[in-house]
Design a protein around this nucleic acid. Sequence first.
DNA 1: CCGTGATCATTA
DNA 2: TAATGATCACGG
Length: 220
Amino acid sequence: MRPLDRAALLHSAEQLTGLSLAEIAQQLGLSVPENLRRDKGWIGQLLELALGASAGSKPEQDFPELGVELKTIPVDERGKPLETTFVSVAPLTGISGLRWQDSNVRNKLSCVLWIPIIGTRQTPPGERIVGPPLWWQPTAEEEQLLRQDWEEIMELISLGQIQTLSARHGQVLQLRPKAANSKALTEAVGAQGQPIMTLPRGFYLKTGFTAALLARHFMI
DNA sequence: CCGTGATCATTA
DNA sequence: TAATGATCACGG
């Protein structure tokens, strides 16, 4: 079931366009949750299964052999994103010398197959509709924006300033909590260079950024 | 706990 | 009402 190349993956994704998530779940023999409160990752995992992505929670792309990352993104009927997009967990220790070129963020975003999922928060998951898939590779301008935000955020983290970092930093990429709850802690570096315990964080794409890239593709 | 898949729910 | 901070499930 795993696609042999990018063309096969795209073809599979195109076959899903217009289907409801309930139809896809039925084909796969899966039950559909009433809402996503306790199944926040259900849509992403449904599409991974439908498209043959490698399972697991490794910090890699979904299709390493194709160099492709798969991302579902909830959008309204006009294609506007309803949520920010999680990219990857942020490293908080041992990051001296880490360059953008070698970062997980850059690796994950180097080539993305976006699958828009049309609906609203009020739309039952099963009734949401798969939109047309689209390939995306950052333009030079987009990569520059991502790189700038990443470098600024990572520098603050390395300087022991993580406790001053909020989701307001960054133009297109932001840092936010990424944990089971507010009691989950992980090691980081404090203002005096000492080890401290803090909330795990993740990098997220802001909606303005994803809205622009989706709009660009829908116009073409 | 970590990293995957994300969205929820409260705040500004 | 959009954005920020908090949270849910799962395999390892």
